[in-house]
Structure formats: structure tokens, C-alpha cells
Design a protein around this nucleic acid. Structure first.
Lengths: 279, 279
DNA sequence: AATGAAGTCCCAATATATGGGATTTCCAAA
DNA sequence: TTTGGAAATCCCATATATTGGGACTTCATT
């Protein structure tokens, strides 16, 4: 009698193409259906669906159910509801999100180092981690140049699209690299976008050097130098990068920056208990 | 061993000192217990409780229940779990939080205006809204001065403690003002903190002028000028402020800033559909 | 005034969450 | 290394919280 039409497990508003590396699948945690559905509602609203019929058809739940969950979320200020306009993300979510960012251990350890690096290089410095199969931006210190590099804390990007992404997966094997290449962002038609073989070749070189570059592969004129950060276990937990426009990023400067950024990454790693290349 | 961490300001699902203005109470929305409990877990973690026994005693749920909910939240990346350390806020929360901030209509409408105001005044400009009984900071543009005003997007403060708070409640009646005075932050022992009567008197003057000040009432040397922002309905939906240290905030300058900030608030209001003082 | 779409409310049926307790894991002291 | 104990995880019968069909209420538009 209860409908069992679609989605038993996930109802991801963004249709995550590859959820594999996280869990063996087939094991959607049980005993929290209502919570999970509530989160689905939250995420659908984040994806821009603001009306009840839209949510219920998108999520495969009845209007009644969505309404009940959304009402609870509004009551707790996780969502706003404006009669004629629909639902939107609420202030409590904002509050918790900023707290999450502030409390992120890597971010705390990195904060001063990032500022210092930005001062020294005059360029935009960024910190990111891997979340799922994507790069999640944790922090950013804008440089002193006349332009602004457009990216925002909390944004996500495909691993291939950025120097940070490459730095984050430097330790993985070629099979994984291949998988990430398959996940590259669709709209990316940059003339300098590498073929699969070129990309793998560069990754090998980056892995050997412990530094990754991005050479206008995604965005024309935009280059960056990124280095992984390791914690006490030696695993890569984040990455720092310096980005700038091509005119400031000639090959020699990228070399210089490599050492500079590497020093920063090392300092941050040490704050996290990393003991250096040898242990 | 129920640890009793300071559990400072935030997120008490039940201990909220004044939940009155939102709903008559006694009407916790029904049919979403599991979702609500899940959010309780989220908020308890945000308040710094990271272990299962702590959470279960704090929230009055069995270990089993907390574990089940927390596992679901970890699975969705709303929480992190590190074996020896416990739970912490997860990356998805950060992502949604930043998106919530970015999508907040007032913030979008205000963004450029805030930057312009910060350039003109050289001082720190902030944007806030009322959330529940507290002031929630929505945006901040740092000034060019040598010092930095410490406050963070996503933070909350008591209405009395800030110029922004006062600006946000300028339209309310004296009964409400009194209630807010009762909610002032406990630790505030500033020598310049006003008595109840002084505070009400000032509020009357601010309401008449349409501008609110903060004269080192909370933090020594810190002064600010704040003006409410109105939307199409004429209601106060947010407030802008310029803050600086006392040496830059002599009476004449505060007068000049009043007009400047008022102009900014007006421009933002117009972007939200406000039609000016008369309608 | 009529129409229709979105949002809200109610209630019986049952799928779903609950918590007691057993079991495993892991650290720290002996 | 062994042992003790605390935290985390798992299991399952029970009862309760959630579900969804359907009816009702707004409210904007025709």
C-alpha cells in the first residue's frame, strides 16, 4: 500500500554521478528515514526548488510529507518560508555553516599561514579539501592585485579543473586518476584542456614533484600552483594554492612559488602533527 | 561522566530563554520527531559536544538513538566522525551555510552598496538581520584602518549589545524594548553600559532620528552608527552599520556618517522594493 | 463569480523508530 | 602482555511516530 516508487536511498538534487568511493553501497543507514528525507528537502531547496509541488515531485514524496518536514525545518529556522515565494535556506543553516568552517581543524591551523603567504606573494591564496569526489573550498585570502579571482568558500569543483584538486589526489593510483578525469566538468571547453593521456602524464610529473599546476586548463589566463598538506598520519588532508593571471605566472615565477607554497604547506602540516617526508 | 563543557551561547533546543515572539509555544510541530531529534544532535555538536554519552545525556535520548541519528548525519556529511575524537560539524553543512548566506536576498541587494560605503568611510561596514531575539551578522566589509574589528559572519549577539541590534528594533514598542533589555548579554560589565531608563531614553531618540549609535556600551573604544533597511512592505528587514574606534568616531563624524549610512540603507531598501518614507 | 493551483489539516493503518541489552572495539593502567 | 572499563556498534520485539489519501482553505487570476 505505501508507495515504493523511486529512490529508496538517495535523492540527491544534483544527481551525484559517482558515489562509489564512499561506501560499499546497498547500505543506506536505517532507522532515520524521516531525518534523511528532511535533509533531502533541505538540499532540494538549496538546489533552487522552492515550491511544494516541485519538491514533492522532485523527491518522490507526497505533498503532505514534504509539507510536514518543511514546516519542521522552518520552525527550526533551517528554512525560510514566504507565502507567495516559497522556501529558501534559513539563517540557522548559515550560522551552523560558518561555525563548521571556523571549527574545521585544517582551516584553523592554516589561517595565519595563508595570510602570510598572500602577503608575500601578493596573490590569491586558497585552501581546499576533498569532499566526496569534489574539491571543497575552505578558505581564501585575496591578493593585492587589481583583479579578483572569482571563487567562493563553500564552492565545489571537479578535481580536474583546478590545481588544488590535482594536489589533493596526488597520492592516489592511476585508476583513480582516470576516474577523476571522467568526472571533469562538462561545460569546460577550454582550448588548453588536456587529453586523457596528457593529463595522466602531467599528474605523474606532479606526483613526483609534490606540486601541481593549473595552466589555463579551465579558465583562460588563470594559472595556479598547489601543494598538498599532510596530517600526522601522512595522508593528504587538504591543499594550498596561489593563483594569479598568466602575466604574473611565468614559468620561473611558478618555480619560485613552488618552494614558497611548499614551505607553507609544510608549516601547516606540522601544526597538524605531520613529521616530515620521513617518519 | 557527563562532561559539562561551557556550552556558551548557542543552540539549546529546549533551554531557549525567550522563544515567545516566534510561536505561542506548546505547539511543537508534529510528525517529524526523527528529523527534529536529528537537528538537535547537529546543534549539540555545534555547541561542542562531540561524544556519544555526552550527546545522549545532554539530549535525553538513548545512546542507541543518538548513534543512529549521528550515523545518518555522518553518512550525509553533515557531521564528521573521527574514532578517537568524536563528532564535529561536517563539510556539507559548511556548503549549505555559505549558500544560504549567498542566496539571502538582503545580502545580495546590499553587497555592492556595502563595499562602496566601506571605501568611502575607510571603516568596517556590517550587515545584520534579526533572527529570533538575536542579531545575526550577514555580511562584513573590513575597513582600511590599522586594526580589525572582530566579528564574524554567522555570529549572533544580543540586541542591546550593538548599534545594529538597536537599529533592527527601532520600530517596536517600548514593551519589546524592555524585553530586549532583559536579554542583554550577561558578561557585559562595560563601565558605560546604560541603565534601563537611559537605554529606553536613547532608544526613543534613535527611533525619532532613524539612526542608532553604539557608544562603547559593550566594548571599550568601539563605536558605531547603524541604520535600518526596509523592504517593499516598509518593515525593517536588516540594518547596516559603520564601526570604528573612538578616536575616529567623534560626535561630528558620527553626524556626517549618519547621513552617509542612511543613504546606503535607503539605496539597499530601494533595491528591495521600498518606496521611501511615505507610501 | 468562477477556476485552479498551492498550501494546510485530519485521521486510521502500518511501516518505522525506539531503547534495552548483548557484543565488539579500543585505550590505558597494571 | 593482560586486564578493566568506557565508548561505540549491533540486534530485535514492541509500540509509537510517520505516512498518504483525501478534504478543506486561501488566494491570484480569468
Amino acid at each position: 500500500m505505501p508507495k515504493r516508487p523511486p529512490a529508496s536511498s538517495a535523492a540527491h538534487p544534483d544527481a551525484d554521478p559517482a558515489r562509489s568511493p564512499s561506501r560499499p553501497a546497498g547500505a543506506p543507514p536505517q532507522g532515520a528515514q524521516t531525518l534523511l528525507r528532511g535533509l533531502d528537502v533541505l538540499e532540494a531547496v538549496a538546489a533552487g526548488i522552492g515550491d511544494l509541488p516541485g519538491l514533492s515531485s522532485r523527491l518522490g514524496m507526497t505533498r503532505t510529507t514534504v509539507h510536514r518536514l518543511a514546516t519542521a525545518l522552518v520552525d527550526r529556522r533551517y528554512l525560510n518560508f514566504v507565502p507567495r515565494q516559497g522556501y529558501s535556506l534559513g539563517p540557522r543553516l548559515m550560522e551552523l555553516g560558518f561555525r563548521a568552517q571556523r571549527d574545521m581543524p585544517v582551516r584553523q591551523a592554516a589561517s595565519q599561514h595563508l595570510k602570510r603567504l598572500a602577503e608575500r606573494t601578493q596573490d590569491t591564496v586558497q585552501l581546499a579539501m576533498l569532499d566526496g569526489d569534489e574539491v571543497l573550498y575552505l578558505d581564501k585570502v585575496s591578493g593585492q592585485r587589481l583583479f579578483e579571482i572569482r571563487s567562493t568558500i563553500g564552492d565545489r569543483h571537479a578535481v580536474c579543473s583546478t590545481g588544488l584538486g590535482k594536489a589533493l589526489v596526488l597520492d592516489m593510483d592511476e585508476a583513480r586518476w582516470n576516474a577523476f578525469f571522467d568526472l571533469r566538468e562538462p561545460g569546460n571547453a577550454s582550448p588548453l584542456a588536456p587529453t586523457r593521456e596528457e593529463w595522466l602524464g602531467r599528474m605523474r610529473a606532479y606526483a613526483a614533484a609534490g606540486v601541481a599546476f593549473d595552466l589555463e586548463e579551465t579558465e583562460a589566463q588563470l594559472r595556479c600552483v598547489a601543494v598538498p598538506i599532510r596530517d600526522a598520519s601522512g595522508a593528504i588532508v587538504a591543499a594550498v594554492s596561489v593563483s594569479s593571471f598568466a602575466q604574473y605566472m611565468q614559468p620561473e615565477r611558478m618555480q619560485e612559488l613552488s618552494s614558497e607554497v611548499r614551505r607553507t604547506a609544510q608549516a601547516i602540516g606540522e601544526a597538524l602533527g605531520w613529521r616530515g617526508p620521513r617518519s
